[in-house]
Design a protein around this nucleic acid. Structure first.
Lengths: 135, 135
DNA sequence: AAATTTGTAACATATTTTATTACAGTATGA
DNA sequence: TCATACTGTAATAAAATATGTTACAAATTT
């Protein structure tokens, strides 16, 4: 899963933030996202690895937040679900005998690094609580 | 072509900017990018549509810039090759009976719009000439 | 003990990207 | 004027990636 990871994780966390004391099941969450529950559990697995949620197995089990929504930023979610934003690369290795081919990816990297700085700054200003309050 | 469009087009334009008076063939350009010439011609077709380059058919034909590299910004390239940057959406339509599902995409859109503003601002500060001078 | 849920692997399908082939049309220049 | 070297574009194929499904062991509740 790549393209939907941030959106799905943000959706999951928004739901959890609405019921901070309940364990929500992957099936319930999947019903809101309209996604297979197995994929929801995979993203939750990632969130657990990052100590943002905890799960309880068995009957009446599910997942809940480990900390208040005010202490989670969208930048945190971004870091858990995205490598970096980029505007793409050509798939194949460019010609190393061409001055442009030799350095194109390096120079794109510099550009993309600048872009990511701006994005990170933006995302760090929004908490899950802020985001969730829009609903 | 989605993922490589910006990178490939930037690569093409960088090459053209190095030889502003020559018609470069799609085969030559493809050799630097290590990409099929047909795909290069497709991107060039897009550049022509945007009046950034012109092509000449026939023997000794090829493509060259229609204006100086100092008058083309990376934002121009971005607009020709990207819709908008986003951090993804879940693939399926979310549940409209859930308050979160109903508004998640709308709220993600707002967030992504903010991100795009920052990216646009950044890209508008770099000309093709600036970029090309790094090589 | 029965029911419900997570965790995870294995596999299947769908979608998107990239590559290839083919060939008509155009310009050059020997 | 004919061979050559290009562009333009459509059609198709292959590869890569994303998403979906099935299956089932393990955990917990009632």
């Amino acid at each position: 899963m790549i393209s939907g990871k941030f959106a799905i994780t943000t959706h999951i966390l928004t739901l959890l933030s609405k019921f901070p004391n309940d364990y929500l099941s992957s099936e319930y969450i999947a019903g809101s996202i309209n996604l297979n529950p197995v994929l929801v559990r995979k993203e939750i697995s990632n969130l657990k690895k990052n100590h943002v949620v905890e799960s309880k197995e068995g009957k009446n089990g599910g997942t809940r937040l480990l900390k208040p929504a005010s202490e989670i930023t969208l930048l945190d979610i971004f870091k858990m679900t995205f490598d970096t934003v980029n505007l793409g690369y050509a798939k194949n290795q460019p010609n190393p005998d061409c001055p442009v081919g030799k350095k194109i990816n390096e120079n794109l990297d510099l550009l993309y690094a600048d872009i990511n700085e701006k994005i990170n700054a933006q995302l760090s200003t929004v908490t899950l609580e802020n985001f969730s309050n829009q609903f």
